[in-house]
Amino acid sequence: MPPRAGFEEQLKHIQDEVLLIGSLVEKTIHRSVQSLSDRNLELAQQVIADDDEIDVRQHELEEFCIDVIARQQPMAGDLRMIVTGLQVASELERIGDYAEGIAKISVRMGDQPPLKPLIDIPRMADISVNMLRRSLTALNARDDEIAREVWQDDDQVDQLNEQVFRELVTYMLQDPRNIERATLLMWVSHNLERVADRATNIAERVIYLSTGLIATEGQSWSDVGLDSDTDKNGGGSE
């Protein structure tokens, strides 16, 4: 039997559970945006109900991680894996809440006619979910290169959010009766923008997992001690 076989299994369980929660969260974002664009109230109610499972799994994983820390006193790569697992699960739980928030907006809109065809919002959802998926792929592979790429995609979502905001303000100015529906869509856009931020956070955790460096968005790679050809305009200190 390899050394610490039981501990290895616990570490694998943490990683598997994070990836499972991640897949639930991916699905729930898609469904929440779909409920909004299809005006499908039943689907929206389902998304709201399904969030409980994500919350329960996150809490169970948190307890499991704390128990493993207490019993195994992990060090080095093991410690980084468990800390990363805790943090990523917490980010995923928050992303689940954003999906639930979008579903609630969908319910609130009820059978009001759509303000406009949704174009940018589904795009934001696609990019955000893609970022989330890649950040989880990076976690699975402990690949900080993939994580770096996720980091860079956040700008696209920020720009789309800005674009949606400006467009919706125009609708509001045109007709005050649009204000409520436009505001609700702004919240949706804001939630998706936060999803992308959280996916970026997950990417940062993966960078910590694989390098031990704690990085935050806005820092250049050279700021955190990593060189990258892809970040030449990142505002490095050199």
């Binding site: 390899p2 050394p3 610490r4 501990f7 992990p74 060090m75 080095a76 790569g77 093991d78 410690l79 980084r80 390098t211 031990g212």
Partner: peptide, 16 residues
Amino acid sequence: FTTPSDDRTEAYITGR
């Protein structure tokens, strides 16, 4: 204890 440079250190302090 968080990010050792050498694999031998990592193996030792993580009990492998």
